[in-house]
């Protein structure tokens, strides 16, 4: 029993770490540009498939390095051409646009790579379980968590100490003033968007190694990231981090006692948070709208 619980908590943490990576990208874009990027799951899938395509040439490590920037480049293009004209308008429009994009991504990946699931081979030493006693912790899972930890740390350092990061944080609070102070807000939004999509691409490569690839996988992974953001509190990246881990562990523990509800528990958690603390765990008071 104890081992089963331990297994599921660890499992939940690992899944949670993965949600965090995805939700942080979504949260970055949402905070600065007020765009709910419905195509985030689509970008994730595209990142995964790019990794799948280039793995035979550059190996898994090469793909891990190359696929996310390529995905970010696609994201940059999408932002420049399609999303930029919508910034001044009701957020409804960017939501609908990215919603349509998600359709196009899903259908496009199916068209290019086929509807059949594709496996991505990870290096052999990562696929081994660590020990007999802890059979469930494969090297790859640890590696996933480590990658997420590194990526999240880098992101927070970037936001805290670099000029770009400081501007992004300032823009989250008051974009108009930042613009009046002479910062190129258009460029800021583009870079921020690309950073968010980079994280989606990275999640895609990691997911591909663990789950394999399917054109439809993006939509299913999107919803937990939404919940992570709402639970964690809007406008707070630390909140998103906390929210992702929390729903991961919660669904891990529920899987022990009531497997059918392991998905539903996230929604229950969200309902409880909205009931007693509408702004989310670490959301700021002023960020109600």
């Amino acid at each position: 029993m104890l081992q089963l619980l331990l297994f599921n908590v660890t499992n939940g943490l690992i899944i949670g770490a993965f949600y965090v990576l995805m939700a942080l990208g979504l949260s970055l874009i949402l905070n600065l540009s007020n765009v709910i990027n419905f195509a985030h799951g689509g970008f994730l899938v595209v990142g995964g498939y790019i990794a799948y395509t280039i793995t035979p040439y550059v190996g898994f490590w090469g793909a891990l390095l190359i696929a996310p920037p390529l995905t970010a480049a696609i994201g940059l293009l999408v932002e420049r051409v399609l999303i930029r004209p919508l910034y001044g308008r009701d957020p409804l429009y960017s939501l609908l646009l990215t919603f349509g994009l998600a359709f196009i991504f899903e259908d496009g990946t199916r068209f290019i790579w086929g509807a059949q699931g594709k496996p991505v081979t990870v290096p052999a030493f990562l696929a081994q379980p660590l020990s007999n006693e802890f059979f469930f912790i494969t090297g790859y899972r640890l590696f996933m968590v480590a990658t997420v930890a590194v990526a999240v740390t880098l992101l927070f350092v970037l936001l805290r100490y670099t000029r770009l990061g400081i501007r992004i944080r300032a823009g989250t609070l008051d974009l108009e003033t930042v613009s009046a102070l002479g910062v190129n807000v258009g460029l800021l939004r583009s870079l921020n968007f690309a950073a968010g999509i980079y994280l989606a691409g990275l999640s895609g490569v990691l997911a591909a190694g663990q789950l394999g690839l399917e054109p439809t996988m993006g939509a299913g992974l999107l919803m937990p990231s939404f919940i992570a953001i709402i639970v964690g509190g809007i406008g707070s990246l630390t909140g998103t981090l906390l929210g992702g881990l929390l729903i991961g562990v919660a669904s891990g523990i529920t899987a022990v006692f009531l497997p059918a509800a392991s998905e539903a528990i996230m929604y229950v958690l969200m309902a409880v948070v909205l009931l007693i603390r509408p702004r989310g765990l670490l959301g700021e008071e002023g960020m109600m709208t």
Binding site: L82, L86, L96, L97, G100, L101, I104
Partner: peptide
Amino acid sequence: VGLLFVIVVL
């Protein structure tokens, strides 16, 4: 259908 979304919005 996705393209239709994009066109209508833009």
